[in-house]
Nucleic acid binder design. Structure first.
Length: 324
DNA sequence: AATCGCGCCAACCGCATCGCG
DNA sequence: CCGCGATGCGGTTGGCGCGAT
C-alpha cells in the first residue's frame, strides 16, 4: 500500500483561496509569526492543510512579494543562476528576495524555456538539437549578455546578426568561447584580465595551480570563467547539486564545491569530489559569517557584470534573503 | 455569439531533508 | 543512532482568462 496523501482528511478544502481565508491566515501570522504550520489550521479554524497554509503565505501573502513582469535584469539573473544551480528554485529565489521560488519556476517554465529555444535556433540550429552541447553553457552566454544588454530577445537578434556575419560559426567550444570573449571585451565594465588565460576550457585545469593576476576580483573572475567553461558546466550539470546545497540560508553559494572564507575568497577542496558522502557535504557547505555577511562569490560576480546596468534598488535585491 | 485552443499561474502532490526525542 | 513528525522543495496539474476562428 502506498503512502497516503498528505491532505486525505475529510473536510479539508482544496483549490483557490478566498479573501476571507487570506485574512484569517494573515491575521493569525501577524499575531503568531510564520512557522508551526501544523497548528495553523487548528488554531485558525481554516479548513486547509498545513502545507496549503504555508504555501499560500510564502507564495502570495508574505509581505514584500513583487508580482507582475520580471525585469530584464531579473530575467538575466534567473537564467544565469539556473545555469549554475539547475532547478534549485528556492536557491535562485534567495537571490531575488521579492520573488518566490514558485514565481521563478513558473516564469522559467512558461517564458524562459521558450526564449532559450528561440535563442538556440538563432545561435545555431545544430546546437539546438545537439544533446552533447551543454544547455547550461549556452545559457551562461545568454544570461551574461542578458544581464549586460537588457533582454534575451536582444541577445537572440544579436547572435543572429553575428551568424550572418560569419557563416563558419560552429557549435564548438572554441567558437563559443570566442563569442564569450567578444562579449567580455565589449562588457560595459572591462576588467584587466589576462587575455591569454581568461577562458579556460579544459576541465582538467587545476585552479589551484594557476597563476592568477594579483587581486581577488581578477582571480575570482577567472575562477568563474573556468566554472562557466563547457566541460565544467557539464560537470556541474551532472553532479549531485545537493552537495552544494545553497538552500541553507546561512550557506555561501559556491558553485564549484569550494569553501568560501569570510572575506569572500574561495578555498578549494579539490579532493572533495562531488558525491553523496554526507561527511563531505558537511565540509562543502560553507561556514556562515558573522553579522553583515560579505557578498558571495557569485553575487559579487553578478554585481560586477551588471555594473552600470543595475540601479540601486536592484543592487539591494542581490543580497540573499535570510529564510523566513 | 459560441467554441476552441493555448498560455499562465496558483495550488497540489509526493519525495527529500531537517530536527527533535 | 534511529524513528518519526514537521517542514521544505520541485515537478506537475487544473482551472481561468483571453485571443483566434
Amino acid at each position: 500500500m502506498g503512502r497516503p496523501p498528505c491532505c486525505e482528511k475529510v473536510g479539508i478544502k482544496k483549490g483557490p483561496w478566498t479573501p476571507e481565508e487570506d485574512i484569517i491566515l494573515v491575521s493569525y501570522i501577524q499575531e503568531h509569526g510564520p512557522g508551526n504550520w501544523r497548528s495553523v489550521p487548528t488554531n485558525t479554524g481554516l479548513l486547509r492543510c498545513s502545507k496549503s497554509c504555508r504555501l499560500r503565505w510564502t507564495n502570495y501573502l508574505r509581505p514584500g512579494i513583487k508580482r507582475g513582469n520580471f525585469t530584464p535584469h531579473e530575467e538575466g539573473m534567473i537564467i544565469h543562476l539556473q545555469a549554475l544551480l539547475g532547478n534549485k528554485w528556492a536557491a535562485i529565489a534567495s537571490y531575488l528576495p521579492q520573488r518566490t521560488d514558485n514565481d521563478i519556476k513558473n516564469y522559467w517554465n512558461t517564458h524562459l524555456k521558450k526564449k532559450l529555444k528561440k535563442f538556440q535556433s538563432a545561435i545555431d540550429p545544430h546546437m539546438a538539437s545537439d544533446s552533447t552541447t551543454s544547455t547550461s553553457h549556452q545559457l551562461n552566454i545568454v544570461s551574461r549578455r542578458s544581464l549586460s544588454e537588457g533582454s534575451l530577445d536582444n541577445m537572440a537578434s544579436h547572435v543572429t546578426l553575428k551568424n550572418n556575419q560569419s557563416s563558419t560559426y560552429a557549435s564548438s567550444t572554441a567558437n563559443i568561447s570566442r563569442l564569450l570573449e567578444g562579449w567580455m571585451r565589449s562588457s560595459p565594465t572591462p576588467k584587466t584580465l589576462s587575455n591569454t588565460n581568461h577562458l579556460k576550457l579544459n576541465a582538467s585545469d587545476d585552479l589551484q595551480d594557476q597563476e592568477t593576476p594579483a587581486g581577488n576580483l581578477v582571480s575570482r573572475r577567472e575562477e568563474l570563467e573556468s566554472i562557466l567553461s563547457y566541460e565544467n558546466l557539464n560537470n556541474v550539470a551532472s553532479w549531485d547539486r545537493s552537495t552544494c546545497d545553497s538552500t541553507q540560508s546561512d550557506n555561501k553559494l559556491n558553485p564549484r564545491c569550494g569553501r568560501v572564507a569570510n572575506d569572500g575568497e574561495i578555498i578549494h577542496d579539490d579532493h572533495l569530489v562531488p558525491d553523496h558522502d554526507q561527511k563531505n557535504k558537511q565540509i562543502i557547505r560553507c561556514e556562515s559569517s558573522t553579522s553583515a555577511p560579505p557578498l558571495s562569490f557569485l553575487e559579487k560576480w553578478l554585481l560586477d557584470e551588471s555594473a552600470g546596468q543595475v540601479d540601486d534598488d536592484q543592487m539591494m535585491e542581490l543580497s540573499p534573503m535570510s529564510s523566513v
